[in-house]
Design a protein around this nucleic acid. Structure first.
Lengths: 216, 216
DNA sequence: GATATCCGAAACTGGGCAGTACCGTATATA
DNA sequence: TATATACGGTACTGCCCAGTTTCGGATATC
């Protein structure tokens, strides 16, 4: 496979942060960035990092290959940005369910839209697995965009349950919060079974709630 | 990435199962097969499927590239055999701990040798993730060699606990048995933290035992 | 000892892909 | 309107790697 270009001297082609000296001529159409990154995410989910080619991404975004290289210095940079941009369509931490019980909150997080997003993110993660070990930058992007948001929601719901006195204050919030994300990843990637409502409910009632001391 | 060759007409070069018509000349040295497959597993763990090259495997096994192609028809076939051969150095289902308690049995499964093996297998799995979706044959090999053995051990220990009357007969053995394998995979591949004794014990006492109704 | 097949090593072939260069066209500034 | 740049598209370069071929030497059967 091709090396991820992580040389810090190879500055991003799309680095427009430097003070613009009022260049003239046609301006770059940044509204296309999102289309390209979305296309990259799609290809990544279907083909994986090594299977993804710049031509595939360009074709799917109906853009020229040169356009992509005008904005990102390398395939690696593009992928990192693509992964990071997945973060946007994610859970809103300010609008979490608040039903008064841990079970109600957890069940309230199960929404069809969320399940679809989660599945696609896991596909992307699978396609990047073999690269993870060799690119700390990509590893961080994955963690921030895919892993953390989901675990963070669970941690918040668990802490609220502790504050309510619903569950013991000494239970291992960090570990418990990782149960459903990791089991879901396993189920999707290894078992190739759907992560549907039924599965998540049985996970909540059969594992998570008993683990924090709530008996059905 | 290069296609896995799954064309059934492309018969394995090493297919010696056909009745040998007493060929003459030097015989193939099958004692080298194991060396080559072990080398393949090592490279696979370090580089992933796409990063692995036949030359790397040949060099590590101190063998010629042609020797590999005399025995396997393609890179894909070699990888499938390599994964399958990982199964050998695995848990012996006839020699499981039998301490009289579920906790004792689970703790008894934690052995340094086992932890090392498990970690390497997970690295291999990570390297094959992106290919999994496109090769049912490889998917099966992975499942048989890496996933199933570990889950099967847990299922056996759980069923024995049910027979003893230690835990409820209606608990979801299949789901519970997957908790530690999937959390371990998550911890190694995503969090990049070691799956050590401490982690596994906290998993047993903080998640698995509570989930089956045993309070500490 | 003749022959057939193995071996490791190395050269070679063919295809795929990252990255670059250039085209004619479109669109912005001056 | 002249100029500078972006655009989509295509052709090109250079490298890497799967798979093949060829070699001199080793080893087993006859």
């Amino acid at each position: 496979m091709t090396q991820l270009d992580l040389d810090p001297t190879n500055t991003r082609a799309a680095d427009d942060t430097a003070a613009e000296p009022a260049r003239l001529g046609r301006k770059r159409d940044h509204s296309r960035d999102a289309d390209i990154l979305d296309a990259a995410v799609d290809v990544l989910a279907e083909e994986g990092y090594d299977g993804m080619t710049i031509d595939m991404v360009a074709a799917r975004a109906k853009a020229g290959k040169a356009t992509l290289y005008r904005r990102w210095a390398s395939k690696g940079e593009l992928v990192i940005d693509a992964v990071a941009c997945m973060k946007k369509d994610d859970l809103d931490l300010d609008r979490l369910p608040d039903t008064g019980t841990l079970r109600g909150d957890l069940i309230g997080m199960i929404k069809p839209r969320t399940l679809e997003e989660a599945e696609k993110k896991l596909q992307v993660m699978a396609g990047l697995m073999s690269v993870l070990a060799r690119s700390p930058e990509l590893s961080d992007a994955i963690s921030q965009a895919i892993i953390e948001p989901r675990a963070e929601v669970n941690r918040i719901l668990l802490r609220r349950a502790i504050e309510r006195g619903e569950i013991a204050a000494d239970c291992d919030v960090d570990t418990i919060a990782l149960i459903s994300p990791s089991m879901a990843a396993y189920r999707t990637l290894v078992l190739k079974k759907p992560v549907d409502r039924e599965f998540l409910v049985s996970m909540i009632d059969g594992v998570i709630l008993p683990a924090v001391g709530i008996r059905p």
